[in-house]
Simulated assay, not measured.
Amino acid sequence: MLAVVLCAVGGVLLGGAWSLRSQGARRPAIVVVAVLGVIALAAGVLWLFPHGASS
């Protein structure tokens, strides 16, 4: 369940970054929102892996 929520949040943040870009926002704001989106999406994907599989 948490993986789905994290992927959804990541998608919303990445969509927000795209929207900010199209509205002409300043670059630092776009980068911050995009990086947070990528982190949330990566966390959602990593959460799907079995625990202990990385060791």
Rank of each mutant, 00 (worst) to 15 (best):
M1G: 11
M1F: 10
L2T: 14
A3W: 09
V4Q: 13
V4W: 09
V5K: 07
V5R: 10
V5H: 07
L6Y: 05
L6S: 00
C7E: 14
C7Q: 12
V9M: 09
G11N: 09
V12E: 03
L13E: 07
L13Y: 03
L14W: 01
L14P: 02
L14T: 04
G15H: 02
G16I: 01
A17M: 04
L20F: 03
L20C: 01
L20W: 00
R21W: 06
R21V: 00
R21I: 00
S22T: 09
S22R: 13
S22K: 11
Q23H: 09
G24H: 02
G24W: 05
A25E: 08
A25K: 01
A25S: 12
R26E: 07
R26C: 10
R27A: 11
P28F: 03
A29I: 10
A29D: 10
A29M: 13
A29Q: 13
A29Y: 12
I30N: 02
V32M: 14
V33D: 01
V33E: 01
V35G: 04
V35K: 05
V35L: 11
L36K: 00
L36V: 05
V38M: 15
I39G: 07
A40D: 05
A40W: 06
A42L: 15
A43S: 15
A43Y: 07
V45E: 08
W47A: 15
L48D: 07
L48F: 07
F49W: 13
F49T: 10
P50S: 11
P50V: 10
P50K: 14
H51R: 14
G52R: 06
G52M: 04
A53E: 13
S54H: 15
S54W: 15
S55G: 14
S55F: 14
